[in-house]
Write a protein that binds this DNA or RNA. Structure first.
Lengths: 343, 343
DNA sequence: CGTTAGCACTCTCGGTAGGTGAGTGCTAAC
DNA sequence: GTTAGCACTCACCTACCGAGAGTGCTAACG
């Protein structure tokens, strides 16, 4: 991108800020008065038509104001934008509100998504921590009734999963002991990716007659290990799509996209940079061609564990949203890492 | 409602079925051919204008076909409709798919809602079992790390809740024992409604120096008891609102209503009959004046524990949806009651 | 050469008019 | 009570007009 004169930069920034605020194409007069009438509207018109020329602005039709193009937003985000953070008291409120869920990663990410949706008026997507290289730290059996028990699995990367198992045989102290012996010797300390079907099968073969009692439990553990590796998504503020008129044509396709699951999941997992802003067709899915996605990874310890971010129209207050998302990702990471340290 | 001649009943039913299928106002000719030309279109026109007269039909404008009024749907549901059940193989699929969650009531209801949304193309709402008269059956402490532990609370009415607690002091065997002594003597067997703030306070007073260690746990238990009493809602298929053109004007208000929480909750809890069909303005919320709600309660043991149902347009295939919802409510009840029996 | 004033031009938007067709309501006959 | 015939109504579509906002261009200015 060629260098722009300072005035053109100022004009571009002004157009974007006005357009983001109003949603209306911005005319030369409006910019003129916004810039304190330091130059005439004719001058601005000249500059604007240059900006259209190089693709940073668009005009919906010949005789309307200008709106930013995707490239215009991109230039703004990369070069012009001056970000402004959340207020201190707002940061504190969020921190306190999230703290109560800091022990339960799934709930924490769900709530963080809800907060983000509220904060941004966009659809918020968050993924619970997952890690295919996580290690099993602990497995507990919690008897609930004579025939049901809860299995709780704690893994590295701040991951906690549980499931309820029903057994045909009565769950008593003996069975619990067998369970602990098996899990201690064969599961705890292992990488969750090693708990494959063949692993379970060879294990089962060596169990002798305890196999019948144990198999539902072993299956459950294998499911839990699978869950540790799997990205679990939380979607919040879906109704916010309807808040943005520029998305209303796509509303149905977007909703459908959000619920299809897999593409959204790969969207999150394919992020490479810690913070990723994809504007319009920069997104790899054509359903998002009129949308912007902003996602930030959060780390547990020093490992990326998941992401949180938003999907909204391209017309967004980038200067405000980007710091908010960064802040949330940071706080999630620190909460989840806390649990980790306390070994 | 005055008695209708058999032919008028047939005309009303035909109009409703055609209108439900196509969404277009139904003309006399269409009815005529649908009824096998047994009478002429003029005759049908006469009958139709009688049906408009008594309020069972409406005409969008003078020269369009007729559509059912709310009262028309009501008459159809009460008198004319012949319901048709889900296919056996579909019932089996649902059963098997839900079975795997039968131990975890919250997940079970969530999945049931997802299935219902899929099945009906409507927004599905389900509530996890809750019961302010439930008794605490069991409380377990699961140590996760030196400073965190999970508390699992099992109550009657098939309710299972858990939370993670962080403690400043190290969680060791001694503390676990103290925990078990306290919960066994003061909590297990009690009605969840008796675990009030004052109860906790008097208990704390009698604890002596163990209070500092125990208070986070006791707070968590009190929160869990609160959760047992609280209706937890699961919303699924929200994007289906956009599938129904007649709701698109209300889409935003509806979405907003769904997310406001409290009114939706009271909608579910205020249901008196086991199955409740509210058409249009029969709903107590004006946001739903163009919608139909169909909700069925499910029972755990012989006690109503929660509800499941849908919110959709008034133009619904009542004959198919009502049995589906009944079936799901029945299966949920039987799964949750199963766990109960196994004491 | 960058900047500015002036002015004709373009295009959207809202409102209005005429034509079309589906479906009705009424009347008179069966 | 039922039916055929026919005039009538009303939404929908298209075309058209006028107003207004904003531009693009040209010529003059410093």
């Amino acid at each position: 991108m060629a260098e722009l004169t300072p005035r053109k930069q100022q004009i571009l920034a002004t157009i974007i800020e006005l357009y983001v605020a109003t949603g209306e194409p911005v005319g030369s007069k409006a910019i003129c008065s916004e810039m304190g009438n330091s130059v005439s509207s004719a001058t601005i018109r000249n500059d604007m038509s240059d900006l259209v020329e190089i693709g940073l602005l668009e005009q919906p039709h010949t005789s309307a104001g200008r709106i930013p193009s995707q490239a215009g937003y991109r230039y703004y985000v990369d070069n012009l934008m001056t970000t402004y953070e959340l207020g201190i008291e707002e940061q504190e409120r969020i921190k306190i509100w999230l703290q109560s869920f800091s022990g339960e990663p799934d709930k924490l990410l769900e709530k963080a998504g809800a907060i983000l949706a509220e904060l941004t008026d966009c659809v918020a997507v968050s993924s619970s921590p997952s890690d295919s290289e996580a290690f099993i730290k602990r497995i507990e059996l919690v008897p609930l009734s004579n025939h049901t028990a809860m299995i709780v699995l704690l893994a590295t990367s701040g991951i906690l999963k549980s499931a309820v198992v029903r057994s045909d045989t009565e769950i008593n102290v003996d069975i619990a002991e067998v369970f602990y012996n098996i899990t201690q010797s064969y599961f705890v300390g292992k990488n969750v990716s090693d708990i494959t079907l063949t692993f379970i099968q060879t294990l089962v073969a060596s169990l002798g007659d305890r196999v019948f009692i144990m198999s539902p439990f072993l299956c459950a553990i294998s499911d839990l290990c699978e869950a540790v590796k799997t990205t679990e998504l939380h979607l919040k503020g879906q109704s916010n799509i309807l808040n943005h008129p520029e998305l209303s044509d796509d509303a149905f396709r977007l909703m459908d996209f959000l619920h299809r699951g897999t593409p959204l999941e790969s969207l999150l997992t394919s992020q490479k940079a810690p913070l990723n802003v994809a504007i319009g067709t920069e997104n790899s899915y054509r359903e998002l061609k009129n949308s912007t996605t902003i996602f930030s990874k959060y780390a547990v310890g020093d490992k990326d564990a998941g992401s949180i971010g938003i999907i909204g129209p391209t017309r967004l207050d980038y200067a405000k949203l980007i710091p908010s998302i960064k802040y949330l990702a940071g706080i999630i990471g620190s909460f989840l890492s806390e649990t980790l340290d306390e070994e």
